[in-house]
Amino acid sequence: MSGALNHRQIWRMPLILAFVSIVGLLAALLGNNWWDVLSWGTLGYTMAVMLWYVLKPTL
């Protein structure tokens, strides 16, 4: 049996992704142009994270 993870290890990535998502959802609401780009980039990052872990074995 491998060692269990502590809460910090379990929640590190989910918390980063939650923060990034909140920035992405609010940015486009608060501004235009670069704020829109910030929105696309941050939400796009969460999409990339999913694709990365799902497609990893095929890469």
């Binding site: 990535m13 989910p14 799902v54």
Partner: peptide, 27 residues
């Protein structure tokens, strides 16, 4: 984070996918 146990049963794989996709899109 992001583990998907491809070598395990189909149900386990879907459990891992459910957990990964669910937690990333949660906000």
């Amino acid at each position: 984070f992001g583990s998907i146990r491809w070598e395990r049963s189909r149900r386990t794989r879907w459990l891992d996918l459910h957990n990964l996709l669910g937690i990333v899109t949660v906000v």
